[in-house]
């Protein structure tokens, strides 16, 4: 026997993927909220100041008038911008400059409480493409949760009955 297949219709819980309803949501209760270790990534550090060139605010690096070396006019070092605060939290940009070139840009942003979603992060965007409508041969189909009834009409059901 090379393989076996089975399709079963059960009453698995969890069909109702209801998210939200209330605005005044309490954080999940007891055991959940207990561990204080909330942050997923780094915490915003709004109080941090520029490391080397103290007082040179601004996340975009600093143009100096130093006549020597770097054509770009950018001083080597690590520069932290002044934290920019909006209602969703504080964003602070850090630039690393080596040999007059920007070698790294990093931003801290809030990841808990209010807003990892709203503050854009320096990550690649999803790429836009053309929506396909194809009929390829597949072993299984992923789709929005269907009821037992709509399962009967689904592509997955057709696959299952073809194998049964």
């Amino acid at each position: 026997m090379r393989r076996s297949t089975a399709a079963a219709v059960g009453t698995l819980t969890g069909a109702a993927l209801i998210v939200g309803v209330r605005l005044s949501v309490q954080p999940p209760s007891a055991p959940a909220a207990a561990p204080p270790s909330t942050s997923l990534v780094d915490n915003p550090a709004p109080e941090a100041t520029a490391k080397k060139p103290a007082g040179t605010a601004g996340g975009a690096g600093k143009k100096t008038t130093e006549p020597e070396k770097n054509k770009s006019g950018l001083k080597d070092g690590t520069f932290k911008g002044k934290g920019a605060t909006n209602p969703y939290g504080t964003v602070q940009v850090t630039l690393k400059i080596a040999n007059g070139k920007i070698t790294a840009v990093d931003a801290t942003y809030p990841t808990t409480g209010n807003s990892a979603t709203i503050n854009p992060v320096a990550v690649p965007k999803l790429k836009q493409e053309t929506l396909q409508a194809q009929s390829a041969k597949v072993a299984a189909v992923s789709g929005a949760t269907y009821t037992s009834q709509s399962y009967q009409e689904s592509l997955q059901a057709a696959l299952d009955s073809a194998k049964a």
């Binding site: 089975a6 059960g10 009821t147």
Partner: peptide, 11 residues
């Protein structure tokens, strides 16, 4: 509310 579960073993 039920959910259909399909299982395929290819061993």
């Amino acid at each position: 509310m039920g959910t259909a579960v399909s299982i395929e073993l290819a061993d």
